[in-house]
Write a protein that binds this DNA or RNA. Sequence first.
DNA 1: CGATACCTTGATCGATCTCAATGTCGGTGG
DNA 2: CCACCGACATTGAGATCGATCAAGGTATCG
Lengths: 243, 243
Amino acid sequence: MSVKPNLTPLPGSCSACAVRPFALFRVVPQAQVGEIARVRSAVRLVRANEVIRDGVFTLYAGWAFSWTTTTDGRRQILDFHLPGDLVERSEDGAEVSALTDASFCALSRDRLCEFMGRDPGLALSYADGLSRDRARLRERLTSLGRRDAVGRVAHLLLELHTRLQRRGGADRTGAPLPLKQAHLADALGLSVEHANRALATLRREEVASLQKGRLEILDRPEMEELAGWSIAPAEAPVITAKA
Amino acid sequence: MSVKPNLTPLPGSCSACAVRPFALFRVVPQAQVGEIARVRSAVRLVRANEVIRDGVFTLYAGWAFSWTTTTDGRRQILDFHLPGDLVERSEDGAEVSALTDASFCALSRDRLCEFMGRDPGLALSYADGLSRDRARLRERLTSLGRRDAVGRVAHLLLELHTRLQRRGGADRTGAPLPLKQAHLADALGLSVEHANRALATLRREEVASLQKGRLEILDRPEMEELAGWSIAPAEAPVITAKA
DNA sequence: CGATACCTTGATCGATCTCAATGTCGGTGG
DNA sequence: CCACCGACATTGAGATCGATCAAGGTATCG
């Protein structure tokens, strides 16, 4: 086991940054890329499972996730972070950990705020990221509220596949996915055993498989069906319920 | 039954707006309040349960909520909106409905973007709102993932009480709360019957009661206990699960 | 080879859903 | 004024999904 994570180090200059097209600073014109460096406070490498203490950072390589624990000690994973994502350690007691070995650019919150205060485009880029986060959380909330275990798992896998694809980290039928079953369980409000069974169902039905860090989508239509993956608008039931 | 909602109409001028101190435009200095009017596209009154079609608006009076339905027709409430909140009808098939009779200022998305593009402070105010939305969704996700029915109900009631209090709409021991049990159920991933039973438990244990549109908090320490209402940071279990 | 981390499976238990009534209360038409 | 109606709230009994508990199984790494 190497002492340091086995990741290519970050480029010294932001102008060569491979993830900038997907990141907060994508809106900064080439001419002002130099200014970004003043917001950067450190470049770091962390090992899988290490807790990250920096308040704001842009993930460069590897995965991370945000989580809390309830008072009785159970973990809830709030979101997964992919390369290019801007991640904030929030005030409210949530933590951020590396899911894999990872590297990132820590930012100074003060200098970032200052920069955004001068550059509305950057502020809007920041807002755009928040808006995406919110959309993801809403989807996940819908999963936990109204989908069964198989549906939740299928939905999360489709979500991650889509996000990876947008960054070129996936092909149409699969992608590398470093999640353990415990991560799935803690993100979806399931026990590990049940997450395992849901995954087994998907595999048995030849819908999808997640093994050895790789997702394979075998039957996308069926998977979307199970996940309730419709971005379709809805008629308006006035006062509904029925779990 | 009146044909029009029984709400005081909005003031003609934004400078007299009662909710502006809590709203997106709180950061606009008095001298430029006139510019806000150009972003406003309409003032509307809607009845309880009416679907709202405007894309972006500031709620002025009354409550609203955002929701989706799953493919099998069950409803998930994504968030509740209170006076002063900026509400967006999102791209993704989520709808917004009035929970009570309500009035609001519809905004032009284009002109709002333009304004924010000129005024970084406004863009950051917008981001701040998104950030709060996200924090609320994370809390709710934790509820659905890791808390039982009574905990979920208690937590949501505390959240709403806190939000109302910040706006002066609640005293320490209670507040008017127009939610039906079906709203609670659909927000928390429960059946109406079970939401009812959870509420009954809280009442029986003399922790809190929600009746006739009013919340009473009878035993706040106990309620916080049940809700897991700790904003306490947590130790880091490395790979947990166990629902 | 043994340890460790992770995955899998089975049996049982329990929280929550479903289905089916019944109760309450404010409003409305007669 | 009263009987009825519709919207909500409540209660009970039985069915289910997913949690727990308890073993194994497998693969990787030192």
